[in-house]
Design a binder for these strands. Structure first.
Ligand SMILES: NC(=O)c1ccc[n+]([C@@H]2O[C@H](COP(=O)([O-])OP(=O)(O)OC[C@H]3O[C@@H](n4cnc5c(N)ncnc54)[C@H](O)[C@@H]3O)[C@@H](O)[C@H]2O)c1
Ligand SMILES: NC(=O)c1ccc[n+]([C@@H]2O[C@H](COP(=O)([O-])OP(=O)(O)OC[C@H]3O[C@@H](n4cnc5c(N)ncnc54)[C@H](O)[C@@H]3O)[C@@H](O)[C@H]2O)c1
Lengths: 232, 232
DNA sequence: GTGCCTTTGTGAACCCACGCACAAAGTCGG
DNA sequence: CCGACTTTGTGCGTGGGTTCACAAAGGCAC
């Protein structure tokens, strides 16, 4: 029988909190490297670039791991957040689409250090298949299902052109994968229970451009910028 | 004297809306390519992967550009959103740090098509300086201020190692840049008025891992996973 | 042991965002 | 010209997230 613990550590951590936990973890790792034994919410919040009340509320969702008057034990908190995020196990990741971006990702060391192991590189282009990148040989997408099953891949990164993304997505989901990181500029259609996170650099630039334009315009709108009644 | 238009198109577009406008724009461009003249909020919302009421509310912040009973004119809406986002002008972008990621970004065609022109590539490594990438010659970071001023760079992409990011950030801000896209896994400290957007792939993977772990655990928590009273 | 000082954990108010649901507005066939 | 139909634009209720502010909790000096 499964007992639920009602009062403390009731799961259902808010999404906003989950998104910040990696930030705290990074800040804590920095402190740990410098040998800091404990840290107050104020200092940790500063390092993570958030409000200290928000930090305390976020951490309170995981449990009561602080000591009043002292702060948080750095090592212990690293362990707790890592466990909560599932970083105590390692995750096999496959990258589909080994072009400009896929290569950069494959060569990046920052993933491995967090428990993410690149377990497969796949591409549809025969000229790319067979290339050795970061110690791995690029395999043909025909092998996609086999690679996922054989190596226990549970997270797939899609770095193919936009036109191929949905098709790749469908195939990896059919193979049982439910976590996808998508770099292609398309909205992927997925069934319930599948998590897709997207990274779109073009969107980020456009958001910057919006604010930049507003700054340049210097506050209020000039009336003549768009005269009344003008259509097209 | 500057007249403000009170009732319609009063600025102060919510951030959440601004973040979705590029999504709508992408969907509209897809429709335009297929020659679709008009689109309903329902159809456009489907293509953009959002709720139709949300889409209509978002668009209503720009003005009343739809026709009841018909929908939105695709070309006209593309123009309005582009103008709102500041994509009718072109933006000079510099990339600092031409390693794995910087190269991928420089070679990526998707930016230019949106009015973002790569106007400079800069690196501190003498072995990289002088390389020709995507038609541009990599320059030394000593030239950073000169390049920004000379070429009218208003958006800077930071793709250096984490240790160098803050220093690069300080220099570009000192040169007058107020829009930064940061790929380095650090929280950049910037003065008011400077916009920083960050892309952290490692964080995205960690969020996926969190949800993946939860799915694997199969719902409620086993009590024995963390016995009462155990501390470390 | 006592009292002071620091810091946590959280109650409560506020603000923003989402999405339902509907009236108003406009189209189109006849 | 009219009535039926389609679709927009938005008022409003709901919920989640952020922040303030403070009581409670623990450490530490003496
Ligand atoms: N490079 C960037 O900086 C950047 C920035 C933003 C977005 N993106 C997006 O990321 C994606 C990849 O970009 P890129 O610059 O690496 O493109 P790229 O063309 O260099 O690489 C794409 C790779 O995918 C492979 N591919 C094509 N169809 C495939 C399929 N069905 N299955 C498996 N592999 C397939 C190609 O052979 C190629 O090697 C694109 O969707 C792009 O829009 C890239
Ligand atoms: N490659 C990826 O997929 C990836 C993923 C996530 C995050 N990142 C982050 O993006 C950044 C770049 O990653 P990368 O893989 O391209 O690293 P990289 O080491 O391949 O490239 C970094 C480049 O920056 C240059 N550089 C160093 N100091 C500099 C300075 N002060 N001024 C200008 N240039 C300087 C180096 O000479 C090098 O060419 C890193 O912070 C990394 O953590 C990369």
């Amino acid at each position: 029988m499964i007992r639920r613990i009602p009062q403390a550590r009731d799961r259902g951590i808010p999404d906003a909190t989950v998104a910040r936990l990696p930030l705290y973890l990074r800040a804590l790792n920095g402190l740990a490297e410098r040998g800091t034994p404990t840290v107050s919410s104020e200092d940790l919040a500063l390092a993570a670039g958030v409000n200290s009340a928000k930090l305390r509320k976020d951490l309170s969702h995981l449990g009561s791991y602080g000591t009043r008057g002292v702060g948080y034990d750095v090592q212990y908190l690293i362990y707790q957040i890592s466990r909560e995020l599932g970083l105590t196990q390692d995750w096999a990741v496959a990258i589909v689409g080994v072009g400009n971006l896929g290569r950069a990702l494959a060569n990046y060391g920052g993933f491995v250090s967090r428990g993410f192991r690149i377990a497969g590189l796949l591409d549809a282009d025969p000229r790319v298949v067979g290339d050795r990148i970061a110690g791995l040989v690029v395999e043909h997408t025909d092998e996609l299902e086999a690679v996922i099953k054989k190596r226990g891949v549970s997270i797939v990164v899609i770095a193919t052109p936009a036109t191929a993304a949905q098709q790749v997505c469908d195939r990896v989901i059919a193979s049982g994968v439910t976590s996808i990181l998508n770099f292609a500029p398309v909205v992927l259609a997925v069934p319930d229970g599948v998590d897709v996170r997207k990274v779109d650099l073009s969107i980020e630039l456009q958001i910057l451009a919006f604010h930049e334009q507003r700054k340049a315009n210097g506050g209020p709108i000039m009336a003549e910028e768009w005269p009344d009644g003008v259509v097209m």
